[in-house]
């Protein structure tokens, strides 16, 4: 599923506009606990989270996460946005809560991330 399609499904805004909207996302992981993200196998995954601090970007980079979507219209600060740009990780913000965001994407055919 492309980033563009994901943004449409979630009525999401793209936080940094320099990003490639055709990047392919293989699956998704919903979590606020960063160790859960690190526990799963998430290369080329989408992370759906309610946290917006810089360490979320670093977790994503280490876990190979391709894109992050922040729920409940949360917007990260400039420091986080800069770090994400530097790491080439596109950021989205959706008005949906984590449940609705997960539900919509799952219903649209996006699978969950691998658990191994």
């Amino acid at each position: 599923m492309t980033l563009k399609k994901i943004a449409e499904i979630l009525d999401a805004t793209i936080i940094s506009d320099s990003d490639d909207l055709n990047v392919q996302i293989l699956n998704a992981c919903s979590a606020d606990m960063m160790s859960a993200v690190l526990y799963y196998h998430t290369p080329n995954s989408l992370l759906i989270t309610g946290l917006t601090q810089p360490h979320v970007i670093r977790t994503a980079e280490i876990a190979g996460i391709k894109t992050i979507v922040f729920v409940l219209n949360k917007k990260p600060d400039a420091l986080t946005i800069d770090l994400a740009k530097q790491k080439k990780i596109p950021l989205l913000s959706t008005p949906c809560c984590m449940y609705t965001a997960s539900g919509r994407l799952f219903s649209a055919g996006l699978p969950g991330c691998l658990t191994k």
Binding site: M33, S35, L38, L51, H55
Partner: peptide
């Protein structure tokens, strides 16, 4: 710390794994 997304009790197990 849990509100920052850490302290789920998975750190040491993740290191070992």
């Amino acid at each position: 710390v849990r509100e920052m997304g850490w302290g789920a009790g998975m750190g040491l197990p993740n290191m070992k794994k």
